[in-house]
Simulated scan of single mutants.
Amino acid sequence: MIKTSRIEVAGKTIAKALGEELRRARETKGWSRAQFVARLPSGIGERTLLAYEHGLRQLTVIRLVELCEALGVTPPGTLTVALQKAGEYLHNLELQVDLRLLLADRGNKFRSIFPWARNRLTEEPEGIIELAPSAVRELAAFIGYPHDDLAGYLAKFTPEEQSGDPT
């Protein structure tokens, strides 16, 4: 029996989430795969792009940069959103949280952060905030839960739109 390591599983999960973010950014532009690959200087084919978008093939850093530049999104922002959606390395990520989605949640475990979320929503009418790992740690300590539990909960409320756009 071949044992799959945690890193291999995480790698597949991340590749899939990263591919989904790239596909989402491409579709936001209204581009087909053929239209997108025609814009790339590397000359990759549609099948290669398809494999990236489905997480079947892992991206090199240089390829990620190339694809993000062509899409007009930032590589760090795209990778961060993918890691958050994959639920990987949350303890090190600046989490992007859609407060409107969070406040619509009907779970009771973390209900104690709802007043905080409502107050933040008045400061951020768009509803999207970024929380540094230290802020998540402090919030978790305040409500009496482990950081990893709260980070995992907050990660579920990743904004729906592609969040790697430069502003």
Rank of each mutant, 00 (worst) to 15 (best):
L154W: 03
T74Q: 10
K29A: 13
R63M: 15
W31S: 07
L90P: 04
V61E: 08
E130N: 11
Y145T: 11
A141F: 09
S112P: 12
L90R: 02
G87P: 02
H147M: 10
N119Q: 05
P166V: 12
I129V: 15
L18N: 04
Q58D: 13
G87K: 01
W31G: 00
R24S: 12
T60A: 12
T158G: 03
E66W: 03
I44D: 01
L93D: 00
A86K: 00
A117S: 08
I7P: 04
Y153Q: 03
E53T: 07
L93V: 01
L95G: 00
Y145V: 14
Y145R: 08
V136P: 03
I143H: 09
T167P: 14
Q84T: 07
P41D: 00
L95M: 01
L131R: 05
E66V: 07
T13N: 08
K109E: 13
T167F: 11
E124F: 13
L83P: 01
N108C: 03
E66Y: 07
L99T: 01
Y145H: 13
G43P: 06
R57K: 15
A104D: 06
G152W: 02
L56K: 15
A15D: 07
S112H: 10
A151Y: 11
A104C: 05
N92M: 09
E123C: 03
T167M: 06
E94T: 14
L64A: 11
D105P: 02
A117L: 09
E138Q: 06
E123V: 07
F110I: 01
R63L: 13
L67K: 00
L103D: 02
F110Y: 12
L40A: 06
E126D: 14
H147E: 14
H54Y: 10
V97S: 01
G87S: 01
T122K: 15
A135D: 13
L99M: 06
V73S: 05
G87L: 05
Y153W: 12
R57T: 09
L71N: 00
V73A: 09
R24L: 11
Y89F: 13
G107C: 08
Q58M: 09
D149F: 12
